[in-house]
């Protein structure tokens, strides 16, 4: 009987050695988060991704699965971000007539807004006494993860710290865009999409596709341009 119990207790350890465990866990949390989100009336301040992530973190901690081994298994999911980023080129092309009509505002806004996204964070953290390493980790906070990793390494920041900042930024940028859209008000979904992609990278872009195809295309554009622009400018600015 006790042997049976021991084997029962060992289940998470044994199963978590296979990537299919991480995949099952992530998928379950994804659907559970969406279900709960619908049940509590789709509140703007609590996007489904946060609900799913909280549940997933609780399960990982509860089963005392090592986070790094989960991450390793979940690589089977996260590698798809590469082709998924390429896939963003398709709505971009389909919405190209909208983007052509907006090219002046895009070209004027982008450099300034992308620079401000980094400057606000760095100045605030610097004023509150953050170390240069932390500053370098916060600077690319609005840039999509694969590009931001490269930037942080170049600046001498910490990649895990940057990833944490990136994710929090993505979530709060999504919340603030939803809130400010109501307060200002801004109802042009092209502007909302662009702001979501520019400030909230992939998390903002995922939210923009929930608004509409057009918002999603503008978010993809904002995310892509911010990534390219920041990657080129930030290392130059930081050297000064």
């Amino acid at each position: 009987m006790s042997e049976l119990a021991e084997r029962f207790i060992a289940i998470p350890d044994v199963l978590s050695a296979s990537p299919i465990f991480a995949i099952g866990l992530t998928l379950s949390a994804f659907f559970a988060g969406n279900w709960l989100f619908a049940r509590i009336g789709r509140p703007l301040w609590m996007p489904p991704v946060v609900l799913s992530a909280v549940m997933l973190a609780a399960v990982i901690a509860g089963l005392s699965v090592d986070y790094l081994s989960y991450q390793e298994g979940a690589l089977w999911i996260t590698v798809l971000l590469g082709p998924a980023t390429v896939a963003l080129g398709i709505p971009l092309y389909q919405q190209i007539h909208h983007i052509r009509a907006m090219w002046v505002p895009i070209v004027v806004t982008l450099p300034l807004a992308a620079t401000l996204a980094a400057v606000y964070a760095v100045v605030i953290a610097w004023a509150l006494g953050a170390t240069p390493e932390v500053l370098a980790s916060l600077a690319p906070k609005s840039v999509t993860a694969p590009i931001a990793i490269g930037i942080t390494e170049q600046l001498g920041g910490s990649v895990p710290l940057m990833m944490g900042g990136l994710l929090i930024t993505g979530v709060v940028a999504t919340l603030f865009v939803d809130l400010l859209a109501k307060w200002l008000p801004v109802d042009d979904e092209r502007i909302l999409g662009f702001a979501l992609g520019l400030n909230g990278h992939a998390i903002g872009t995922a939210r923009a596709f929930e608004i509409s195809h057009t918002a999603g295309a503008f978010a993809s554009l904002g995310m892509g341009l911010t990534g390219v622009f920041t990657a080129l400018i930030l290392p130059l600015v930081f050297r000064l």
């Binding site: 991480a22 992530t26 949390a29 994804f30 991704v49 946060v50 799913s52 992530a53 997933l56 973190a57 990982i60 986070y67 989960y70 991450q71 979940a74 999911i77 996260t78 798809l80 971000l81 998924a84 993860a145 895990p160 990833m163 944490g164 994710l167 993505g170 979530v171 992939a202 998390i203 995922a206």
Partner: peptide, 8 residues
């Protein structure tokens, strides 16, 4: 796709 990272 971004969830495993968010959990981090």
């Amino acid at each position: 796709l971004i969830m495993p990272g968010v959990v981090g």
